[in-house]
Design a protein around this nucleic acid. Structure first.
Lengths: 345, 345
DNA sequence: GTGAAAGCGCTAACAG
DNA sequence: CTGTTAGCGCTTTCAC
């Protein structure tokens, strides 16, 4: 395939470069006969417009960036991020955008990221995973008037678009469910408190506990980092204080925790109950059967892209705030079915 | 920040645009004093060259694409791919390349991918995960003389650069290790046979078994797809024919398999031994302690990028073929330590 | 509905 | 070492 330019196509079709351009870009101001002729030439030659030239002339790159900060950057320990990425990639394909992936591994990366992503002509917009409190990147991005969507509510949500689920409420429902089932000593494994979603899910737990007039016991709260490994370790801690049920802030945490519980011979849900968060495919497997809060992760990614495209095309103001629904999926690990039998007796 | 151009910088520094360009691109042909002056202006103004303009003029995009075919596209079920992606992203940051991620979700995606990634001016090169037998993408890419590195040996390796580990040998070593420990009825959980690495690891297994003069029993070979869930299901099958050891073609498979074994009350390694492949972090956790073939996944990604950059800068011929080392990491799940004690007695 | 012409912001010979 | 001059391939007014 030779390096054809628009000029060549125009010549072969016997029209001007502008007209050829109009056909390529589906401009309505072209007569049908000419359009057909040009399209035929394009088809025959396999012509593809030069990406950089188009970017330069049109001031659009048709490319969006996904930025994942360092703290989530060994992003393979929690299946959430790959899944989110998948949703985002899918939506990009759909809308004909190219996805640029920026995984921040080191502190160095983090320091150099702003110039790289804000460089003019590279990205039309950015999806940024919620970062830590006091993160400068979001602030700088907001100031730069760049189209940005935050995945997960940021610490300072003023004037910036984001998309989230109602984590407080979802966690509250999950823990309340355990309470209704009669558990009295409910522990939780949280994510690290440098993320709003970790904070919010803990808040939902606390709310449900205090609503009962119970005291929140610090020893029943264990810290993880959303990975399976962390769930395992956190559960080792919790086992010392013998909870009868545990709300884990992610499925990965829950699965690690379940491993730890089983390792010491506990049976689920008879000896101890679990509720997770995410509803990953593994949650529904027969030996896990995890009751969990279903998050529409892929759909969340799609929504992020579509919101961003809206920002790109219609301006960033006013900021969009989108909250997606969750749903408590009741399986075996919470003991609901057995409890119901008990109650019936 | 206003939209500064090189011209503006040049004016402010009292030099020509070319000189400013030279400073930006670290061209040695600039006097120190001028260089300092221009650099100062750049620093003061926060100037960033326009990405598209640079791409167009230099015929380089400083962007590489990572293409993951549909069959690996729900790429969050096997931690291998996120990890590989991380290695690739890391190397891209290091070398100042932007990473374009192309996750192929649907058949549609797969059909439309070639024009998208081969569009001139978008990518300097492509890293492509090994695809299925008869995949047209690789062929078309080879024909197009585009710089491409395949991650994992492709089915038709002629004239194309790839990077791989010696899967046959690694699997052979792993299974031989089980044989030496005295296991007599060794099963395996393979990946789907549409991937060279799945085929190769099975071949290593077969080689080790037949080397002993043993017959390869089909019922001892279960098919998975490299996910934990598949490992669990495959193991359910294998349990029916009571193997005393199992070689799993990935750690994810092994962990799913271990869950299935434990579910029916088997103890590891006393009742049944396991060896995995990958050495993911979870393999070393205290209740898993998986003996496994360590693959340098992140380093593999880095190597892929560096090979690709070599191709971009020095031409694609001759094709590079790089085989990276693996290592058998012996932990508890194979029963080596206990066996040794037995032997010593 | 179509064409001519003017850039988009940069790199890269080439001349000095 | 530095400046001048052509483009890179496309989009986008602006006339007609």
């Amino acid at each position: 395939m030779p390096n054809l330019t628009l000029e060549d196509i125009a010549k072969k079709a016997g029209v001007s470069r502008s007209t050829a351009s109009r056909v390529v870009n589906d401009d309505p101001n072209v007569s049908d006969s000419v359009r057909r002729r040009v399209k035929q030439v394009i088809l025959n030659t396999g012509y593809q417009p030069h990406a950089a030239a188009r970017m330069l002339a049109s001031h659009r790159s048709w490319m969006i960036g996904l930025v994942l900060p360092r703290t989530v950057s060994n992003f393979f320990t929690d299946p959430y991020f790959p899944r989110l990425t998948q949703g985002i990639a899918q939506a990009c394909n759909q809308h004909n955008y190219t996805l640029g992936l920026f995984l921040l591994d080191t502190k160095e990366d983090e320091k150099r990221i702003f110039p790289r992503i804000s460089r003019k002509g590279l990205l039309d917009g950015i999806i940024l995973q919620t970062a830590e409190k006091g993160d400068l990147l979001i602030e700088r991005l907001v100031k730069s008037d760049f189209p940005v969507v935050i995945a997960g509510r940021p610490f300072i949500p003023n004037g910036i678009s984001y998309i989230d689920v109602d984590n407080v409420n979802a966690a509250h429902i999950a823990v309340s469910h355990l309470i209704q089932l009669g558990y009295k000593r409910i522990g939780t494994i949280t994510g690290r408190m440098n993320r709003t979603y970790a904070i919010d899910r803990k808040e939902g737990y606390v709310k449900a506990i205090t609503e009962q007039g119970w005291k929140v016991e610090e020893e029943l709260i264990a810290l993880g980092d959303f990975s399976e490994e962390a769930g395992y370790k956190a559960m080792k801690q919790l086992l010392l204080v013998k909870p009868d049920a545990v709300f884990a802030a992610s499925d990965a945490l829950a699965i690690g925790a379940i491993r730890a519980a089983r390792e010491v011979g506990l049976h689920i849900p008879n000896d101890i109950a679990f509720v997770g968060f995410d509803d990953l495919p593994i949650a529904s497997q027969s030996d896990i059967n995890l009751t969990t809060v279903r998050q529409p992760i892929v759909q969340f990614g799609v929504q992020a892209v579509e919101t961003l495209i809206d920002l790109i095309e219609n301006g960033i103001k006013p900021a969009r705030h989108i909250i997606m629904d969750t749903e408590l999926v009741i399986r075996e690990s919470c003991g609901a079915s057995q409890k119901n039998i008990n109650l019936r007796r």
